Amino acid sequence: MGDLLGVAVLGAGHMGADHIRRLDRAVSGARVVSVVDPDTDRAEEAAAGIDGVLVHTEAAAGMDAPGVQAVLIASPDPAHEEALLEAFARGLPVLCEKPLVPDPAGALRVVEAEARLGRRLAQVGFMRRYDAAYMRLKSLLDGGRLGRPLMLHCTHRNVSSPPEFTTAMLIDSSVSHEIDAARWLLGQELTAVTVLRPRPSSNAPDGLLDPQLVLFETSGGALVDVEIFVNSGFGYQVRCEAVCEHGSAGIGDERAMVVTTAGGACEEVAQDYLVRFADAYDREVQAWVDATRRGRVCGPTVWDGYAASAVARAGVRAQESGRRESVDLAPRPPLYGSRGD
Rank of each mutant, 00 (worst) to 15 (best):
G2N: 14
G11L: 08
G16M: 05
R21G: 11
R21I: 04
R22M: 15
L23C: 14
S28V: 10
T40H: 08
A43F: 01
E44I: 01
A47Y: 03
A48Q: 12
V55D: 01
V55Q: 07
Q69A: 10
V71M: 05
I73N: 12
P76F: 03
P78R: 04
E82S: 15
L84Y: 02
C96N: 12
A105H: 09
G106E: 10
R109L: 02
V110S: 03
R116N: 15
R119P: 04
V124S: 12
R128T: 06
Y130P: 02
M135C: 00
D142K: 14
G143T: 07
G143V: 02
H153E: 13
H153L: 08
N158R: 15
S161F: 02
T167N: 00
L170Q: 01
S173R: 15
V175T: 05
H177D: 08
R183A: 06
R183E: 01
G187Y: 11
L190R: 04
L190M: 05
V193T: 05
V195N: 03
V195T: 00
R199D: 03
P205H: 06
L209T: 07
D210F: 05
P211S: 02
L213W: 06
V214M: 00
E217W: 01
T218H: 00
L223Q: 09
V226L: 08
E227V: 08
I228F: 00
Q237G: 11
A242K: 08
A249E: 15
A249I: 03
M257F: 15
T260K: 11
T260A: 10
G263H: 09
G264L: 14
E267G: 09
V269K: 03
L274E: 10
A280D: 01
R283E: 15
R294A: 13
R296C: 01
C298R: 02
A312V: 02
A312M: 01
R317D: 09
A318W: 05
R323D: 15
R323M: 07
E325L: 05
S326R: 13
R332Q: 08
P334R: 02
Y336C: 09
S338A: 14
R339E: 09
D341M: 00
